[in-house]
């Protein structure tokens, strides 16, 4: 038997072990395969990071190109392990502070171009020439504005434009969530079909 055939057999066994949860909940076979998944994925993460990321960073960037400043990043990263040292956990918070500060600064500095593009793109031409395009543009604009009205929780929305606007926004959101739900369901179904193909076509050769 070829390696490929063995691979399909193992894939089928893994799929059946995982799907055994559907028959008998948290059964021993499912739990074992679940723990195997976590253990092997952790091992993969460790080896991949060392082999493909840390070693090239040290050999190529720090030693090869003389980017010694990167050692500062390495030291900061290593400080996180102080959270395992009793009484010295606060040192690990320096690394956390560095990450959080960079994340917050990055969000304020680099997000506006993306976010503002979305805002300006929402102000589209409402009279676009043909009826269908104009209708779509008007609806698009109304949905964006009414959705924002719905999310303005600090405003009183018991009457007037805000009341009807936020109500329309809620209905528009339901259409958006419904369509997202429908798409996700179809994506899951195609994934299930893919798994069944492995079992019935590739392993058991029952279908062609």
């Amino acid at each position: 038997m070829s390696v490929e055939q063995w691979s399909f057999i193992f894939k089928t066994l893994s799929i059946l072990a995982a799907w055994s949860y559907l028959v008998k909940g948290d059964n021993p076979v499912y739990t074992a395969v679940e723990h195997f998944l976590v253990g092997s994925a952790t091992a993969y993460g460790i080896v991949y990071t060392i082999q493909n990321q840390i070693v090239p960073r040290i050999v190529q960037d720090i030693i090869g190109r003389g980017k010694w400043g990167y050692i500062f990043g390495a030291i900061l990263g290593l400080l996180i392990y102080f959270s395992f040292v009793k009484g010295q956990e606060w040192i690990a918070r320096i690394t956390m502070g560095f990450w959080i500060g960079y994340g917050a600064g990055y969000s304020l500095a680099y997000s506006p171009p993306v976010f503002l593009t979305q805002v300006t793109d929402s102000f589209i031409n409402l009279r676009a020439g043909d009826f269908a395009k104009s209708f779509n543009n008007i609806l698009y604009f109304l949905v964006v504005v009414s959705t924002l009205m719905y999310f303005a929780f600090t405003l009183k929305k018991d009457k007037g434009v805000l009341y009807y606007g936020s109500r329309f926004g809620r209905y528009a959101l339901m259409v958006a969530f419904g369509s997202a739900y429908g798409s996700i369901t179809m994506a899951y179904l195609s994934l299930i079909i893919g798994q069944l193909t492995i079992i019935f076509r590739d392993t058991l050769h029952l279908i062609k």
């Binding site: 959080i100 500060g101 994340g103 917050a104 600064g105 969000s107 304020l108 997000s111 993306v114 976010f115 979305q118 805002v119 929402s122 779509n136 609806l139 698009y140 604009f141 949905v143 964006v144 504005v145 009414s146 959705t147 924002l148 719905y150 999310f151 926004g169 528009a172 959101l173 259409v175 958006a176 969530f177 369509s179 997202a180 798409s183």
Partner: peptide, 30 residues
Amino acid sequence: WILDVPNSAGMRGIRIGASIGAFAASIRVI
């Protein structure tokens, strides 16, 4: 059409709201 117009517009509204929230959260953290 549902994906292109109502879904896309609704998601854009959510994204704009979330971006404003992320801004406020970033300022609070800093």
